[in-house]
């Protein structure tokens, strides 16, 4: 049995229905992601409300330059991802592959910068809970702040890692010339996911790095 192009699953009436269903499913997943991350943002708000002086003092130990660089890196990756989706819609396969490769590269850059930030924190002992062993005096509950920092950025970093996986997946499918004006749903769906990862960082950056 040869594979039909564009691929239409047997339980859908048309490609249009399949496309709408895929997009609806992705938006449902993204709505869940918003609520899932809002739990962490709520924890942040609650602890900041209880220990404002801790947050003011502890955030000084985060590197604003690296944080801002990562913001620009992630925003640029969002642009290249959007351009990849556009290239797929226009049937420009080479443009699609270039933009996907660039997005992957920016995602790697983001994680490399994050790695340097993390290893610096670990070196200083600015760690969550009982692992906190820094010599600097930070009033209140610094272990709480760094707990939030590591969990929030860590979970976001995990999303970046998953994003890199799915970008690599559609890159390989792009190499097989599977996407064009008739069929590009996977590229668009991955794009939606990637933009949400960017949106989450848009809120994480000012709240963690720029507390004033």
């Amino acid at each position: 049995m040869s594979r039909r192009y564009p691929p239409l699953a047997h339980h859908f009436l048309s490609l249009g229905q399949q496309y709408s269903a895929a997009k609806l499913g992705m938006w449902l997943f993204l709505a869940q992601e918003v609520l899932f991350f809002s739990g962490l943002f709520m924890a942040y708000a609650a602890f900041r409300y209880f220990y404002p002086e801790t947050f003011l003092a502890a955030h000084e130990h985060l590197n604003v330059t690296l944080g801002a660089t990562n913001t620009i890196v992630l925003l640029t990756s969002s642009l290249t991802m959007a351009l990849a989706v556009r290239a797929a819609q226009l049937g420009q396969n080479k443009q699609l592959l270039i933009n996907l490769a660039l997005t992957f590269l920016f995602a790697t850059t983001f994680l490399v910068i994050k790695y340097f930030e993390y290893s610096h924190k670990i070196h200083l002992g600015l760690l969550p809970g009982k692992f906190y062993s820094a010599h600097e005096h930070i009033p209140g509950q610094p272990a709480l702040f760094f707990g939030l920092y590591f969990v929030m950025t860590g979970l976001h970093g995990l999303h970046v890692l998953v994003g890199m996986g799915v970008i690599a997946w559609i890159f390989i499918r792009g190499l097989n010339r599977e996407f064009g004006p008739e069929y590009n749903t996977p590229v668009e769906i991955v794009g939606l996911y990637w933009h949400l990862v960017d949106v989450i960082w848009i809120f994480l950056f000012p709240l963690l790095y720029l507390v004033k």
Partner: peptide, 9 residues
């Protein structure tokens, strides 16, 4: 048929 016939991209 293209998907754009149903859901406008």
């Amino acid at each position: 048929e293209s998907q754009s016939e149903h859901a406008e991209q």
